[in-house]
């Protein structure tokens, strides 16, 4: 565990807490893509199947369980409790266009052709693009509440910090995983446009509004 990895995990955790607090406090999931949330739930459940096969550390097990459980709670809040506030009309991204290619790619390019490893690889590929329905929703409505922007910033920062962690591990531990690194790069690049708007607008107290 190095500082980049720890900050990355904390950033991920903060993102999830911000999202749940936003939904709970405002009693609304307006502006949040239920499709991205479904993709994240698929990502965590397929990646953390190794909870049954491998023990890494108490920290690792705890975080995995938190990610799986909070993603399910989020889906429940969006599709049951606060369903009336869910922005169906704008959340129209076709997630099968992300799931199927991620699955095919995982079957073709993986470290080992076993069920658990292919599902792990699938989850890595799917996570790299899972935010697209959310970014699509923001671009369709043309704006995002600042709390949603903070959520996206924390969520985007997490994989960016992991990139630094992988650079560190390459030199310090002779460890690297090309699949995770390439997917992590793609994932972080997808946020770049948002990061730019966040820094130039939201941090200066303005609303995140896309140029017309």
């Amino acid at each position: 565990m190095n500082i980049f990895r720890l900050l990355g995990d904390l950033s991920h955790l903060v993102a999830i807490i911000i999202l749940l607090l936003k939904i709970w406090k405002t009693r609304s999931c307006a502006g949040i893509s239920g499709k991205s949330q479904i993709l994240f739930a698929i990502v965590y459940t397929t990646r953390y199947l190794d909870l049954f096969t491998t023990y890494v550390s108490t920290y690792n097990t705890f975080m995995k369980l938190v990610f799986i459980m909070t993603s399910i709670v989020t889906i429940f809040l969006m599709n049951a409790k606060f369903k009336a506030t869910y922005d169906h009309n704008h959340d129209t991204f076709r997630i099968e266009f992300l799931i199927l290619p991620a699955l095919v790619l995982a079957l073709l390019i993986n470290n080992e052709f076993t069920i658990i490893e292919v599902l792990w690889t699938f989850s890595i590929y799917l996570e790299s693009v899972a935010i697209l329905p959310q970014l699509f929703l923001v671009s369709k409505t043309g704006e995002a509440e600042s709390i949603t922007s903070h959520y996206l910033f924390a969520l985007g920062s997490y994989r960016g910090l992991y990139l630094l962690n992988w650079v560190y591990r390459y030199y310090a531990e002779d460890h690297y995983d090309l699949i995770a690194i390439v997917a992590g790069l793609v994932q972080t690049i997808l946020y770049c446009d948002f990061f730019y708007l966040y820094i130039t607008k939201v941090l200066k107290g303005k609303k995140l509004q896309l140029p017309a």
Binding site: R5, D9, H12, R47, D50, T54, V56, S57, N60, M63, K64, F67, N111, W120, Y162, N165, Y170, D174, H175, Y176, D177, L178, A180
Partner: peptide, 10 residues
């Protein structure tokens, strides 16, 4: 350089 058999990250 090697790839770890088990995934120790999240």
């Amino acid at each position: 350089y090697h790839v770890l058999a088990k995934h120790d990250e999240l």
